[in-house]
């Protein structure tokens, strides 16, 4: 009787140790590749050549690599372009996404299910494969090296936010619409004056997800925004380091760290929304 109690306590302690050891181990695994980059980014050229990569830098205030990387990779331009792209894509896609979700949720019409399925199917096509043919279309539309073209491309199919919006609309009582209709409001008024303000939490969530995705997108950006001196984004400006600079890792690491700072800041400030947005999107998708 007493023995089982002791065993239970011992078991709990062992389980506790296993828990923390696993958490520490996997956190270490998750962090070490990035931490090693931070360490290296603070080293001077001679220091980088003469010490082991995991030896701490002499000075944590040596920002020279950051400045050089920022310059070499034209990252100032990249940040401006990425900001323009982000603002436009988020505005437009929120606008068309909420409108589409409104119609799909509130109106029963022939083809409603078909349209939903078209979007769902589109989301299952691997993007890399689609670009083989899309490249020609973008070329014909004169969208190569065009920020406008890239922005329009990025505003396209985005099943996750549409699902998040539809889910949100489902939870807004239809009687709200009905009473507005009785009062004589038309559908545009209902959408803009009544429903859109209620949708704010969903908009914030999906904008954060879409924002991080757009900021990190590099494949299409590299393919369609080829002129890296003019239309580079933050992500594609890192391509500067492919080639002759390819072994100057103190420089490269600094560039990498700069490029992931915005994502880090968004993550720290909006952790909750990111988690909940992901969960919502995944359960439905």
């Amino acid at each position: 009787m007493k023995k089982t109690n002791e065993q239970a306590i011992a078991g709990r302690i062992i389980w506790m140790i296993i828990q923390y050891v696993s958490l520490l181990f996997f956190s270490f695994v998750a962090v070490i590749p990035v931490v090693s980059c931070v360490i290296t980014a603070f080293k001077t050229d001679t220091e980088y050549q003469n010490t082991n990569v995991m030896t701490l830098p002499e000075s944590w205030l040596n920002f020279e690599n950051y400045i050089r990387a920022f310059d070499k990779a034209n990252m100032g331009r990249g940040f401006i372009n990425s900001a323009i792209i982000l603002v436009c894509v988020l505005l437009i896609s929120t606008f068309i996404g909420t409108q589409l979700a409104y119609v799909l949720d509130r109106f029963k019409f022939f083809g409603n299910g078909l349209i939903r399925n078209l979007f769902l199917f589109a989301s299952q096509l691997p993007g890399v494969a689609m670009q083989v043919a899309l490249y020609e279309i973008m070329y014909k539309l004169h969208f190569i090296n065009s920020m406008v073209g890239y922005i329009i491309l990025m505003c396209g199919t985005d099943i996750i936010s549409i699902y998040i919006y539809i889910q949100f609309f489902e939870n807004i009582d239809y009687s709200l619409d009905e009473s507005a209709i009785v009062d004589g409001a038309n559908y545009f008024t209902i959408f803009y004056k009544i429903l859109l303000p209620l949708l704010k939490p969903a908009i914030v969530t999906s904008c954060i997800l879409k924002g991080v995705g757009t900021y990190n997108e590099y494949y299409c950006a590299n393919l369609y925004l080829q002129d890296k001196t003019r239309v580079n984004t933050v992500a594609t400006s890192l391509y500067t380091f492919v080639g002759p600079l390819g072994s100057k890792y103190n420089l490269i690491c600094a560039g990498v760290i700069i490029s992931l700072l915005p994502a880090l800041i968004v993550f720290i400030t909006c952790q909750k929304q990111i988690y909940s947005g992901l969960t919502q999107g995944a359960v439905k998708g």
Partner: peptide, 17 residues
């Protein structure tokens, strides 16, 4: 947070890392 963050790093940066 530590274990989730890698998900938010862009692909090119991951390549270099």
């Amino acid at each position: 947070g530590l274990m989730f963050f890698p998900f938010l790093i862009n692909g090119i940066a991951i390549g270099f890392i």
